[in-house]
């Protein structure tokens, strides 16, 4: 079994309010619960607070945390899977997809 990170990103413009997040918590719990029920959730996942700063090489600190596409990372979970295909299968149904976000799937090196 290999370990993967599923990172959730969504566009900065569509940053949900706290109420919207609370409303979506059940979807998240069901989705993560479904992965845990398969015994494939690994410890270490975190929800991230909104906003943040980015420090770049020049020493400039900007409001962030945005990558080029004006997306922000909202959290990640760790899963175990036999390979990339299975990790991608696990990512299906992630509630971030319902608000136009995306899931980045990365194997732990």
């Amino acid at each position: 079994m290999k370990e993967f990170m599923l990172a959730f990103r969504h566009a900065v413009e569509s940053t949900p309010t706290e109420e919207q997040i609370a409303g979506m918590m059940k979807d998240w719990d069901n989705w993560i619960g479904g992965i845990a029920a398969q015994g494939k959730l690994a410890p270490g996942g975190k929800r991230l607070a909104q906003g943040g700063k980015v420090l770049s090489t020049s020493g400039i600190i900007t409001d962030g945390p945005y990558v080029e596409l004006k997306e922000q990372l909202s959290g990640f979970i760790m899963v175990t899977a036999s390979g990339m295909d299975e990790a991608v299968t696990l990512a299906h149904g992630c509630p971030i997809l319902m608000v136009g976000g995306n899931v980045e799937i990365r194997q732990i090196a």
Binding site: K26, D29, N30, I32, G33, A36, A37, L41
Partner: peptide, 9 residues
Amino acid sequence: LQLYNQLLQ
């Protein structure tokens, strides 16, 4: 269900 979701984690 929500409690089981948390418990499994």
